[in-house]
């Protein structure tokens, strides 16, 4: 791949993206338009995250990619290989070894440090989109801090279902100003959005970048009498026994028997290495998962 620049994008494009990132960091939660490029993977498959990663990666970085919390899902493998090829950076599956982590739909269970960057792939950056389809209108609503529609939606959920019927991509308010879509992470992950690391969000098709600087206040929208509740399956991980991690549900046989396992594969493997074994788990072996 020597025909391409380091991390694929040309330096001018990277500078353009970095300017958008800096603006995003300066105005937490604000969606900065940027001239998204066509990437060699399809729109909707992480092109925003890939462009942000390309703009922040340095040759000495260690890169990790997760999709649904897992390092070995096909699209995570594909994106990791892309940067191995085009940037030659070191890659890892260990959350704590990574300096840049690109993610789709999850925040790692392990707490991130100040020297780590978390890059999110974002499909629809606009939290108000499904209440108001027009971009012209939603930008106006953000400018005027007009978020009543969102509260009405949450209220209507409660009156209809007795609960806020949003389970992922749960809207948050950033530093008391912008309502932001945290990307389709389960609401279980929302409390982790206030963290020591830098969080960057890239939406390639929609041409938007936004950011949460370290330790920024991020509040999940709720009501006093219906406070926000992060939820997960009411089980422990069947592999490592963790009770505090987000779980995937697997169908095991034709009778529909279920098992639960950590969605964060590195978290699960690290626990098993440390000797934790769940109800159906095996002791850790290097060659197994």
């Amino acid at each position: 791949m020597s025909d391409y620049n380091f991390a694929y994008l040309d330096e001018q494009t990277k500078r353009m993206i970095r300017r958008a990132i800096l603006k995003g960091l300066a105005i937490p939660g604000y969606q900065v338009p940027f001239a998204s490029r066509e990437m060699p993977m399809p729109y909707g498959w992480g092109t925003g995250g890939v462009q942000v990663s390309a703009a922040v990666l340095k040759p000495d970085d260690t890169f990790k990619v997760i999709d649904q919390g897992a390092d070995d899902t096909t699209n995570a493998v594909s994106i990791r290989r892309f940067f191995q090829k085009t940037a030659g950076v070191a890659v890892t599956e260990a959350t704590e070894e990574a300096s840049v982590i690109q993610t789709r739909h999850r925040i790692p269970e392990a707490e991130l440090r100040a020297d780590q960057i978390l890059v999110y792939q974002v499909p629809i950056p606009e939290p108000l989109r499904f209440l108001e389809p027009s971009e012209v209108e939603t930008r106006k609503m953000h400018a005027l801090e007009e978020y009543g529609l969102m509260h009405v939606k949450l209220y209507e959920d409660i009156s209809q279902h007795g609960d806020i019927a949003t389970a992922y991509a749960y809207p948050v308010k950033v530093e008391g100003r912008y309502v932001m879509d945290p990307s389709p992470i389960p609401k279980f992950d929302n409390p982790k959005l206030k963290m020591a690391g830098i969080q960057l969000f890239g939406a390639g098709r929609e041409q938007r970048i936004y950011a949460i600087p370290p330790y920024t206040d991020v509040v999940s929208l709720d009501f006093e009498d219906y406070p926000f509740q992060p939820t997960k399956a009411d089980h422990a991980c069947d592999l490592c026994g963790a009770e505090d991690s987000y779980l995937d549900e697997l169908i095991m046989d034709d009778a529909g028997k279920r098992m639960f396992m950590c969605s964060d594969t590195d978290y699960c493997a690290t626990r098993r290495k440390g000797g934790h074994i769940g109800a159906q788990g095996a002791p850790h072996r290097e060659d197994a998962a």
Binding site: D67, N75, P186
Partner: peptide, 11 residues
């Protein structure tokens, strides 16, 4: 692409 994390939260 896999969406089992968001689908799980809906479940």
């Amino acid at each position: 692409l896999p969406h089992y994390v968001d689908f799980q939260s809906e479940l």
